[in-house]
Design a protein around this nucleic acid. Structure first.
Lengths: 107, 107
DNA sequence: CCAATAGTTCAATAACCGTTGAACATAGGA
DNA sequence: TCCTATGTTCAACGGTTATTGAACTATTGG
């Protein structure tokens, strides 16, 4: 289920990161997500995301380029992806603000 | 997280059932969900749904009436609830069709 | 007051899921 | 060819979470 897939914070972050780059290159490779988790853990999450139809992978040399399956998703679950991404961006803002204030408190 | 809460099939069914009755009574009580799970299991899921702000409970005698927190949800996660419910209704249709064909196959 | 109804809480079990490291496969560059 | 970089697969561990039944609370009706 797509919701189950998006309920994991790492997978949500992957989708969010992909969505943010949609107007730039549409694609990111595994290494672009090292800040989120280790390689094998990322591969696990990529598989989950592929399974439920959220993204697909293009192999190019030693790299795998991932991109969102936006058209299919918008067709099958109208508005869901945008709603999720919008919520995630709010969370990202809140997270950014809270870590900033943490730094201030810690300093 | 709201998504995590909605990723459970029983909780999604509860939310979906509540949403379908929204234009009728807005409220359902625990007993209306016995087809989904046992009482104690339902109480567990109700607590989860309350925790993440998806619904709230009104006590009236021995009954607890639940309703969706639609206004708050639409404000915090615009479009999410409707998108989820729309997807769930598609799933419900598919499920209905597949069980019908199961009956035909079984007959 | 007693019995029944409606639902919660608690403890225990089982299943699932995320995380990790090691081994593996594959492609590209020296 | 050998070495390195990029990812995947596998097995194992640990933690979370769903499920269940029993005990409990509280309210209604006889």
């Amino acid at each position: 289920m797509v919701l189950d897939c998006l309920s994991d914070p790492i997978r949500l972050a992957i989708v969010y990161q992909l969505a943010q780059q949609e107007h730039v290159s549409n694609e990111l490779c595994c290494g672009d997500f090292y800040s989120l988790a280790g390689k094998s853990n990322l591969a696990y999450h990529f598989a989950k995301l592929r399974e439920c139809g959220l993204m697909l992978t293009r192999v190019a040399g030693t790299n795998r380029f991932m991109r969102l399956r936006r058209e299919d998703l918008d067709a099958r679950f109208p508005g869901l992806l945008d709603a999720v991404i919008k919520s995630a961006s709010k969370d990202a803002e809140r997270l950014l603000l809270s870590t900033e204030s943490d730094v201030i408190e810690a300093g």
